[in-house]
Measured scan of single mutants.
Amino acid sequence: MIFPGATVRVTNVDDTYYRFEGLVQRVSDGKAAVLFENGNWDKLVTFRLSELEAVK
């Protein structure tokens, strides 16, 4: 189960963010908004829950 605050990895091989890890900001309607941070940039991207896996 994916909840806000969880760290997730993108599993969709066709996505630009494949294998990126980010922090879930919100979850609704089968989608999750994931925040990616890297140095001087932040990006908030929405994914279907089926495209994400929780990082242990």
Rank of each mutant, 00 (worst) to 15 (best):
M1G: 13
M1C: 14
F3A: 10
F3I: 12
F3L: 10
P4K: 08
P4S: 06
P4L: 07
P4W: 05
G5R: 03
G5I: 02
A6T: 11
A6W: 08
A6S: 10
A6Q: 12
T7N: 06
T7R: 15
T7K: 14
V8M: 02
V8H: 01
V8G: 00
V8C: 03
V10N: 01
V10I: 07
T11A: 06
N12G: 05
N12A: 09
N12M: 05
V13S: 10
V13T: 09
V13R: 12
V13P: 15
V13F: 07
V13N: 06
D15W: 04
T16M: 14
T16E: 14
Y17M: 08
Y18G: 03
Y18P: 00
R19E: 08
F20W: 15
F20E: 06
F20V: 07
F20L: 11
F20S: 07
E21D: 04
E21T: 13
E21G: 03
E21I: 15
E21P: 04
G22D: 00
L23I: 15
L23F: 08
Q25W: 12
Q25Y: 10
R26F: 14
V27S: 02
V27P: 00
S28H: 13
S28R: 10
D29Y: 08
D29Q: 08
D29G: 10
D29K: 08
G30M: 05
K31T: 12
A32V: 10
A32P: 01
A32L: 03
A33F: 14
A33M: 14
A33T: 14
L35F: 09
L35T: 05
L35C: 08
F36Q: 00
F36A: 00
E37T: 15
E37Q: 15
N38D: 10
N38Q: 11
G39K: 08
G39C: 11
G39V: 09
N40T: 12
W41I: 12
W41H: 10
W41R: 09
D42G: 14
K43N: 09
K43Y: 10
K43C: 14
K43P: 05
K43L: 14
L44Q: 06
L44Y: 06
L44E: 10
L44V: 13
V45I: 10
V45N: 03
V45E: 06
V45K: 08
T46C: 14
T46A: 05
T46Y: 14
F47N: 01
F47W: 02
F47A: 01
R48I: 08
L49H: 03
L49T: 07
L49A: 03
S50A: 09
S50I: 08
S50W: 13
E51M: 05
E51R: 02
E51T: 04
E51L: 04
L52F: 02
L52M: 02
L52K: 00
E53T: 08
E53M: 09
A54D: 06
A54W: 12
V55L: 08
V55Q: 04
V55D: 02
K56L: 13
K56W: 12
K56A: 13
